[in-house]
Amino acid sequence: MAAAAAAGAGPEMVRGQVFDVGPRYTNLSYIGEGAYGMVCSAYDNVNKVRVAIKKISPFEHQTYCQRTLREIKILLRFRHENIIGINDIIRAPTIEQMKDVYIVQDLMETDLYKLLKTQHLSNDHICYFLYQILRGLKYIHSANVLHRDLKPSNLLLNTTCDLKICDFGLARVADPDHDHTGFLTEYVATRWYRAPEIMLNSKGYTKSIDIWSVGCILAEMLSNRPIFPGKHYLDQLNHILGILGSPSQEDLNCIINLKARNYLLSLPHKNKVPWNRLFPNADSKALDLLDKMLTFNPHKRIEVEQALAHPYLEQYYDPSDEPIAEAPFKFDMELDDLPKEKLKELIFEETARFQPGYRS
């Protein structure tokens, strides 16, 4: 834990890192770190609560700039109880001085990944967590956004079992017609939660990839272990087919990539493993919904509104309290091709509203 900075004593240090967030945020305490930044909790002297502050230093890398800009653009436009918001952003007053960006968010005690390492969940908890994931996802999908990296560590939890989806750095506007060349190379989302079509096709992607990830998360809540822990690309596919069985001819016809289709045709026939054999203690309604989410063919996979209306979630289902976005989200430009200098300018502009004396 960093010592509390005395008023006016300059930035606090946390594990050798400068955290320049005073005077409003003090009493910093280390939480963890990701690929390009550290997260601390801090005391907000204005709202009198502890908050989470993520320090991001992305400006050396085009990919990190892209992810940072995506996350900020999306989260500043989203407003939903099951999606983490941005409360404040701290950065230098000029673009030349801006080396880091500090993002202030609600402090959540833990995440689903940490929880599943230590606790076996009751059916009631599984049901409530799944409902909140789908409630947040309904809003995301209504904005025409794909999260693309749903996994237990991106689901934040607090002691009252509130759940918030975080990390929109890989999110995209849904565009089933656009052929994202190089899709697989830039697709760094965790393999275990990846839909089979991501490994088999490169053309376009749809909201059904997020539903697949939610199915993987439900299976993990039922058993405290990942359902498809593939060691590499082909191993991942083999794990999936080992449980779902061989795809039907109709399902194979959806695979545009001939090499991928021929690979699947070359494999020995596998039978589907019954879900109640894998999860003998699970609620039968939970397994019915799991089956509809972990469907090989993305066109037959359940959609988020149908999933919310499934009998497993009937005690929570309330369409009048499951809000959607006001308007579909649009990125003005494809960020993939922009140089990091341009992305830095866009991050600077996007964060201006939090600067003292800002006038829109």
Results as ranks from 00 to 15, higher is better:
L308H: 11
A5D: 08
N238L: 04
L237A: 05
A327L: 14
P328Y: 06
F129N: 12
A282P: 04
P274S: 03
L116H: 11
T295D: 06
K285A: 11
L218A: 04
H310L: 00
H141Q: 06
T63W: 05
P23H: 01
I53Y: 10
L237R: 05
P356M: 15
S202F: 04
E12K: 01
D179H: 06
L241I: 07
F279M: 08
A325M: 15
I347S: 01
T295N: 04
L346F: 15
D235T: 06
I84M: 12
L28T: 10
V145T: 12
N123K: 00
S153G: 13
H178C: 04
K272Q: 06
C127Y: 01
F168V: 08
D251I: 10
T26N: 02
D20G: 12
P58R: 14
K272R: 04
F183V: 01
S360D: 08
D210L: 02
R148S: 02
K203F: 06
H299E: 07
C166H: 05
L338M: 01
L184G: 01
G182T: 04
L121M: 00
H180P: 04
Y358H: 06
N224H: 08
K73N: 00
L294H: 06
E305A: 04
D179C: 10
R301Q: 03
V49K: 12
Y187P: 08
H61L: 00
P339I: 13
Y113N: 00
H147T: 08
E12V: 02
P229N: 09
L75K: 10
M13I: 00
N158C: 08
F296V: 06
H299Y: 00
K117N: 00
N257W: 02
R148M: 02
Y131H: 12
M108H: 12
D332N: 01
D106H: 12
P280Q: 07
K292S: 11
D337V: 02
V51S: 13
Q119R: 08
R24N: 13
F78W: 11
K164Y: 06
D332K: 11
D167G: 04
K54M: 00
A3C: 07
D44I: 10
P274Y: 12
A7R: 05
L237T: 08
L294V: 07
L170I: 09
E334N: 02
I53H: 12
A260Q: 12
T94F: 09
D291W: 05
N262L: 06
K231H: 14
T26F: 07
D149A: 00
R50W: 07
R135S: 02
T181W: 06
L75R: 07
G136L: 04
A3H: 14
D288P: 05
N82G: 10
D149N: 02
H269R: 07
F228C: 10
K54Q: 04
I53G: 13
S213Y: 03
M221K: 01
R50F: 13
A92Q: 15
R301K: 00
H269S: 13
T351N: 06
A143M: 12
L156H: 05
I53Q: 12
G182P: 03
E326Q: 08
Y205H: 04
R135V: 13
K344R: 01
L265Y: 11
D167E: 03
I302G: 03
R191L: 00
Q62C: 04
D177I: 05
G204D: 13
E334Q: 10
T94D: 14
F228H: 09
Y187A: 08
I89H: 14
T351E: 07
D100S: 15
R67V: 10
L130N: 06
I165V: 04
Q66H: 00
G22V: 00
G136S: 12
D291M: 08
G242P: 03
P356E: 11
V49F: 14
D235P: 02
D175L: 06
A219K: 01
E334S: 13
